[in-house]
């Protein structure tokens, strides 16, 4: 029995190498199969998540397009690309939304910011953070409505130098026991509005007529 012969040489380097290699190969095959079986569903779930957070800062009444379709990509202040999702009514831009982030008390705070064509905040929501529960997490709408105070504000109202927490001479409340977290959020939103100001022309330009849904350009 050849199997027995192989098993008798279990101590040999060759057996060990083949064993380890075989298991590694098997593991790779299983992982590929697992990835193939799930990646479409996962992509779908992620798109749903993004859509859910976008719809909080770009009210459905503002647009008749698919928010995820045809996003813009513009360079941010640090050179990294920023993906901008546009709310369109017809071809007219009625709002834009993009991610902004700030450095909080424990790691990055990611937010999504919706801005109307005049540079006013349509809404802002925290997407992810690792702030202290009970102190810093009041930036979540689920815990506190602090984040709603930004609605309707722009870099003209209040002026840029007042875009800070009260402790720093600005207009926005900090929480008792947590200054760093709201400071990070205010800073992130201010930078987000500055980004809008820099790219206002590109952001509010009517959607390109080359949109796939355009009937004129797709006679075939």
């Amino acid at each position: 029995m050849s199997l027995l012969a192989v098993l008798n040489q279990r101590q040999s380097i060759a057996y060990q190498a083949v064993l380890l290699g075989g298991f590694t190969l098997l593991a790779a095959v299983l992982l590929v199969a697992g990835n193939l079986a799930t990646h479409e569903t996962i992509a779908l779930r992620k798109a749903e998540d993004l859509k859910a957070s976008l719809s909080q800062v770009l009210p459905p009444a503002l647009h008749d397009n698919d928010l995820l379709a045809d996003p813009l990509t513009l360079p941010g202040a640090d050179g990294a690309p920023v993906v901008v999702y546009r709310a369109l009514r017809g071809l007219e831009v009625t709002g834009v939304a993009y991610r902004v982030s700030g450095s909080g008390y424990s790691g990055l705070i990611e937010l999504i910011l919706g801005v109307d064509p005049h540079g006013r905040v349509l809404g802002a929501r925290v997407l992810s953070h690792a702030e202290t529960p009970g102190l810093g997490d009041k930036i979540e709408l689920a815990k506190d409505d602090w984040i709603l105070a930004f609605d309707g504000l722009s870099l003209a109202d209040p002026p840029p130098e007042r875009w800070a927490v009260k402790k720093d001479g600005g207009d926005f409340d900090q929480f008792s026991g947590a200054t760093i977290t709201p400071r990070a959020v205010v800073g992130a939103l201010k930078r987000g509005l500055e980004f809008f100001q820099r790219h206002q022309v590109a952001l509010t330009a009517p959607a390109a007529v080359s949109a796939a849904s355009d009937p004129v350009r797709s006679p075939e």
Binding site: G34, N35, A37, I42, R45, E48, D49
Partner: peptide, 8 residues
């Protein structure tokens, strides 16, 4: 992977 897809 399974949880990400089906228990998102």
């Amino acid at each position: 992977l399974g949880m990400n897809a089906w228990l998102h």
